[in-house]
Every structure is written in C-alpha cells, then in structure tokens.
Write a protein that binds this DNA or RNA. Structure first.
Lengths: 315, 315
DNA sequence: TGTAACATGCTACGCATGGATCGGGCAGCC
DNA sequence: GGCTGCCCGATCCATGCGTAGCATGTTACA
C-alpha cells in the first residue's frame, strides 16, 4: 500500500524544489527524504525525478501523483482532525436519557450551557424512568442517563455504570389550602395517619417510598388517587382529595396548595447522572449538569448538590 | 498520523464481527489484529470496542471511524489502481511529436491500433522537424518523437535519448512524365548533372543529402525551387520545372510524375522513434509504431523495417 | 560549497508464537 | 431446578525476530 507519509514528502519536495529544502521543512535529513522518494519510486514502479547533480526535475508521474495525493492526504487530515475533536468531546453525538422532572427543571439549564461550549455535539433526548433508561444505557443506545433514587428505597445500578451525584431534594408534603395542618411549618408523619393520599402509581419508587416512610409510624397510607404526573397530583391535592409527598423539584408553587416539610425523617430523592464512560462527550455534559445542579441548589432551599463539586476533568 | 492499514483492519473487524474472523480474512493472526486495534485505540485516544470474553461490540466511535475511513481507503485504492495503470502505460498521457510525412503515413495506422489497446491514454500530438522535436523531448515536454535521418547526413541524438529504428525508405527520383529518362527503371546520378532540381529548403537534411549524393559524381545540383511540402515538390516536378529526390513514404503516385530508383548509391531515409524512457506509455506506443511500420513495409517495396522486430517488452 | 546517492548502524515498529485470562455453554450431580 | 466443574473460543500479554525507517558519515558531481 502506498505510504501516505511518502506522498506527503513527495508533495513537500515538489513544493520546495529539492530534497534538502523539503527535508528542512519536514524536519528530516536530506537522506531520509531521498530514501522515502526512492521507496515511493519502487512502490509506483516509475521514476519520479530526473536526477541532476544539484538539481532534480519531477517527472509527469510525480506531478500526477501529487495532484492525486492531495485528496488522500486531505481526507486523512480531516478524519484525524474530527477524531481529535471527537476524543475531546467537542464534536459527535450525545444520546441523553432523562425522567420528566429532570427534563423540565434540570436539563434545560444544563443543555443551554452545554450547547454553548460544545456547539458541534448533536444531542438527542430520550424520555423515560430509570428502570427504562438503565437497560438502554447498558445496551449502548444511550450515552448518559439522568436517574433518581429515593433514600428509603435502596437502588443500585449495574457495576459497569458510573454514577455522578447531582442533586438531593427534600420530599415536600403537599396539603390543600384549607387543611388543618396548612399553617404548620413542619408536619410529622404520625399526624397523617387518617389522611387519604395521592401518590404515584403502584410499583413506582415514589409509591414504595411513601409506604416505607409511613411504616415506622405504624400505618399503611391509604392511597385513593394515583398518577405519575406531578401536575395531576398537585391538582388532586388542591381539590382536597388527599395529601401527597413529592420531590421538591417536582413541585411548583401554586394557589390552593401549601407545602410543609416532614419532621423526624430524612426523606430525600437523589438525582444522578449515570453513564458507561465510552463517549468522551459525556464529560462535558456531566460538567454542564453539575453546573445546572449548583444553580438550582442556590435558588431552591429544599434542594442541595450532591457530594462532589463539578470538576472539569472527568473520568 | 493514522495508519491506513489499521483503518482497513478496523473495517474488516466490524464487517467480520470478531478479531479472529477479521484476521482469517486478512491473512493475519488474531493477535496481530488485536495489536492493530490496540494501536488504533491509542492513536484516536478512544476505546473502539467493548470487550467481552467471546464477543466484542464496537463503540459508536468505531462505527464513525469506519464510515469516515471508507473515503480515505477508497481514495488510496483508487490512486493505487491508477498508479498501477500508469506504470503499465495503460492510462495516462502520451505527448507525441512527429514530422509531416510520418504524421500522414505512419502515425494514423499506429495510433489506430494504440487507441484500441490503450483506450485510457490521452494522446496529444505536436508537429515538428527532428531539430525542433529533440529539444522538446529533452525538456520533458514530449514523451516520444518520430524523427528521420538521411544516411548520407550523419545525425546523432543526445545520449540521454533512446532510439528505436522503425523504417528505412529508399529515396526515389521524381521525374516529369515527359522527361527523357521517364521510362528508365533506375537512373544514375551521373545522368542528372544538367538537370535543375526541386528540393527542400536550404539547411534541411534533405537538401544536404542531395548535395552529398551528387558530390561523388562531381557536381553541385542546381536547385531552382525549394519547398518543404512534398505535395508542392511533386507539383513542381509534374510541371516540368525540375527533378526531385524524395523519400518513398513522401511520395504518392500521381499522374504526370514518374519515379525511378537511383542506381549506384545507397541512399535511404531512416525513421525512428526517440524517447527518454520516463513515461511507461511509450512502450505500448513504440510497439504500435513498430507494427504500423511492418504494415507499411509489407505494402511498399521501397520501404523496409529497421533492424529490430517489434517486441512487446520494451526497455 | 551545496546537493544527491550510497553504506552503515541503530531504533522502533509490526507480526508470529506461546501462554494466560476471561466468560459462556454444556454435562453431570446434588 | 439449581449448582458445580470442565471445555472451548476469543482476547490479551510477553517475547523474539525480521525489517522498515532514520541519522551519520562519506563519496561523487558541478
């Protein structure tokens, strides 16, 4: 196979006019250039230069070779450049998975800054719950997934995935405006034994979390209404159909609904970014997510960033 | 610089599905493939495969690399293929120089067969006398030149040029139809002392040749009319304005002009192909010229091929 | 003096060989 | 059914050998 380095040297020789000049330009010795040209002449089975004592004149074959070699070298250089950008995460594709709350509150902030710093990364977004996203991540169909985990409901990701903690949000109690506890700053779960509840659907981590929180208080919450849409849950609470426990980020203040903090329990939802570490673009995306998390934590008192501070040098 | 061989191996691995299968296809050992992929991964600073025990799954980076590598490899392969054709003389450009007689009688036959066997060679033709063509040949502006040389007028080409003899043609005496010697088969130059001559222009080899042939007979030919166009010469002879000595190929039988052979002297014009040996396309062209020369020699009694018989394996 | 070609020695790359490791498939057993 | 041990294919690693590729020094030429 023709050696691209030889082709490059050949073009340098034609541009420079002599082996020695080309050698100086390329950082070779004149002998090395001479040997490369000789090797190239053997490869193409044609003389490429008419040798004089102090002068060389390229044959038409050499000129033809150079004209054609340009395409090859340009393609190789372009590929190399793109590969470099890809390895640095500045170009490429980032396939992102996220659950609804994060898609609404965290992702817009993160993606805005990410798009600014990585304009050439094509970002595609898949919506889904953690249980749906993790398999996609392992199958290589996602590069990065935003997932959540309730402290009372232990949950571990497969070992081949890496987790970066982003946010820890309190679980807020949602009460109808006219509720007898509406004025309280904090409420104990003990005081809610008689309540009817609005919760996420059976089988979800949110539903399990509620059950496990009430268990120490000695009762099973009576759930009359279920929805996975926090907007729907908020509406049901506002109508006085029950109380609810929702993550802080999932709640937007609205008339007719008051919030209270739980007393006596540490109930949090943790939001994390999970990836497999093969796509360099995730490094920058994680950094943007950490920044966005920090902004949210600064704005909302019931939200705080997880352990690590954002660092630019990811794994 | 990215190694094209590594890129080729990478594509083979993705097509084959495993290192071992790709190795079998490429004629490598599995270890060699593994090492090439490892080297490529170092070069692009990205993992290209997720390794399992018996299975590998390419990363998106690998797929991207393959899709881009195709262009590079295709360009390299195409270049290599064209270079191969060029070195074999089947493609490329042949710059040909020729003098008028050869352009009319020899070249059409030769180029017809050459175009058939080398359809991808672009042929360009320059018209000129040997003294004009030789410098062009040495300057690299011509690849092959058809030249002539009169036996009585020694002429040598520069040593860096190679000559392939093609034809030897007799010099024929042209007489007006009503000339007193018109019925003779052969004529001695001694009998032409009183004639007026039509010849090529002063300074041409043809004019020198005539003078040198007459010298042994003890006279200087009286040239009243000169033209380098043999058609014009023939017309002047037909009109009875003189006699002429023309190469056999330059003469086409026509009414009012009779030809006679010279007796007592060996006067021939030799037609040869001259080249510098840098362009592989000349080999095929020379072969076609030899063939055409053979055809002409078979048709015309006063023309015979030079020394060598046409061989396909030129220098 | 400058340039190219040649001869020599050294370095590094590239491949093959052989062995180690990993993980899945399979049979047999509790 | 589930567990255990074995086998097998595939990759990775260490080693050795051959060779390509470059530098150095020298020669030849104008």
């Amino acid at each position: 196979m023709l050696n691209p380095l030889h082709l490059r040297t050949l073009t340098a020789v034609l541009n420079a006019g002599s082996f020695a000049a080309a050698a100086r330009r390329l950082g070779y010795t004149a002998s090395a250039v001479s040997q490369q040209i000789a090797a190239l002449e053997r490869a193409v089975r044609m003389p490429l230069f008419e040798r004089g004592a102090q002068t060389i004149t390229p044959t038409p074959a050499a000129r033809y070779l150079v004209s054609r070699a340009y395409d090859v070298l340009a393609a190789l250089d372009a590929l190399e450049e793109d590969v470099r950008g890809m390895s640095e995460g500045t170009i490429g594709r980032l396939r992102l998975g996220s659950f609804p709350t994060a898609s609404q509150r965290l992702l817009p902030i993160a993606l805005a800054s990410y798009a600014g710093t990585h304009p050439s990364v094509e970002t595609v977004l898949d919506e889904g719950e953690p249980d749906e996203l993790i398999p996609l991540l392992r199958a290589g169909e996602l590069d990065l997934a935003l997932v959540y985990r309730y402290d009372p409901v232990p949950r571990a990701w497969p070992r081949d995935l890496q987790e970066i903690g982003l946010l820890e949000e309190e679980l807020l109690l949602l009460l109808p405006g006219g509720h007898s506890l509406a004025a309280a700053e904090t409420v104990a779960l003990d005081d809610l034994k008689q309540e009817t509840w609005v919760s996420t659907r059976e089988g979800t981590a949110g539903a399990s979390c509620l059950r496990r929180l009430c268990a120490p208080a000695g009762y099973e919450p009576r759930v009359d209404y279920r929805s996975n849409d926090y907007g729907v849950i908020r509406g049901l609470v506002r109508s006085g159909l029950g109380v609810a426990l929702v993550p802080a980020l999932a709640h937007v203040p609205s008339q007719g609904v008051v919030t209270a903090r739980l007393s006596g329990v540490e109930a949090r939802r943790r939001i994390a970014a999970v990836h497999r570490g093969t796509n360099p673009a995730v490094t920058g995306a994680v950094w943007s997510l950490c920044q966005a998390a920090a902004r949210l934590a600064a704005e909302l008192p019931s939200v705080r960033t997880s352990s690590a501070t954002p660092t630019k040098s990811g794994a």
